[in-house]
């Protein structure tokens, strides 16, 4: 029964994933992604990780997808043609974005390496092995998160912080007076 359910859900996840890139209307892409998240959450539940399932729904379905919908509706993206437009970033902006992403990636790689060094008792912490079955106990997840996986945890929070700052910067740009790009801090007084 559980096995059958797993195959149904796995097929559903794949189908929804295909739907994300196949749908012409971006709104349906978002809804497909939502369906994929639901199937994944149910698979977590089947595997005996209700905490993970609830977190998946809470974070992805409850918050992130809502913001996706929000943006798509605000921009009123009707069809794919709109994607042909490139965002008006210069090469400089791309370079800055690439550099900061690279730095963050390095931090992430280093911290995962750090974690595997500190876990010197043999098992690799990164992918496969959970210490024991009681992992889903919220308390044990919290303990692991704040001891063994402290560095990856902090690195990902740093990534989120960087994203927040970037978003604030983008939003501030609209307040700039006059010509295009006047609000960019590093362009102040350069062009015009």
């Amino acid at each position: 029964m559980a096995e059958l359910l797993f195959y149904v859900l796995a097929a559903g996840t794949v189908a929804a994933g295909v739907g994300v890139i196949a749908c012409r209307n971006p709104l349906f892409s978002v809804l497909s992604l939502l369906g994929a998240f639901f199937c994944l959450a149910t698979i977590y539940l089947l595997a005996g990780f209700p905490f993970l399932a609830a977190t998946q729904l809470l974070v992805y379905a409850g918050a992130i997808m809502v913001l996706f919908l929000f943006v798509i509706m605000l921009l009123n993206l009707g069809d794919e043609e709109q994607y042909a437009e490139r965002p008006p970033f210069g090469k400089r902006g791309l370079a800055i974005a690439g550099a900061s992403a690279g730095v963050l990636l390095l931090i992430a790689v280093f911290s995962v390496g750090f974690g595997s060094v500190s876990a010197s008792d043999g098992d690799s912490p990164a992918v496969t092995s959970f210490p024991d079955e009681s992992i889903d106990d919220v308390q044990s997840i919290a303990e692991l998160l704040f001891s063994r996986y402290m560095l990856p945890f902090e690195a990902s929070s740093l990534l989120l912080l960087a994203t927040m700052i970037a978003v604030i910067l983008l939003a501030k740009r609209q307040r700039g007076s006059g010509a295009e790009g006047a609000g960019w801090p590093w362009k102040k007084g350069v062009e015009q």
């Binding site: 609830a54 729904l57 809470l58 409850g62 509706m73």
Partner: peptide
């Protein structure tokens, strides 16, 4: 009476917004 019911309530309750957004759009 599940172990993470407080989280469940928040996770499920947060989905109610879809009806409003999709209905509006």
């Amino acid at each position: 009476d599940i172990e993470i019911s407080a989280l469940y309530v928040v996770a499920i309750g947060g989905l109610g917004v879809y009806g409003v957004i999709l209905g509006g759009w």
